[in-house]
């Protein structure tokens, strides 16, 4: 079973390095896909909202880590 754990850990590591970043991406996708669509958001603006949220998450995460890190 050890090899199975190693395989699962490797596959998990492909997508998740910073848990808070990955979690925020999944939550934002959920908000856009289920929240905005449910309230009949104009499908033309849905893509732009999707991109804007992801870009904001990237900016916030990088700047937070840049402030915390040392060279």
């Amino acid at each position: 079973m050890r090899w199975l754990k190693a395989v699962i850990r490797e596959i998990w590591g492909l997508f998740v390095e910073d848990g808070s970043f990955a979690g925020a991406i999944v939550i934002w996708l959920g908000v856009v896909l289920f929240g905005i669509r449910r309230f009949a958001w104009n499908t033309r603006w849905g893509g732009i909202a999707l991109f804007a949220g992801l870009a904001l998450l990237l900016v916030e995460n990088v700047l937070r880590h840049a402030r915390k890190s040392r060279r």
């Binding site: 492909l14 992801l54 990088v62 890190s69 060279r71």
Partner: peptide
Amino acid sequence: QLGVGTMVLLFGLRWLRKAILRAAGRI
């Protein structure tokens, strides 16, 4: 597209985040 797109986003943004921090000299 939804399933694979989500995985590609997680994978791609993970790489991009790390590459930005490396290019900035933070890691």
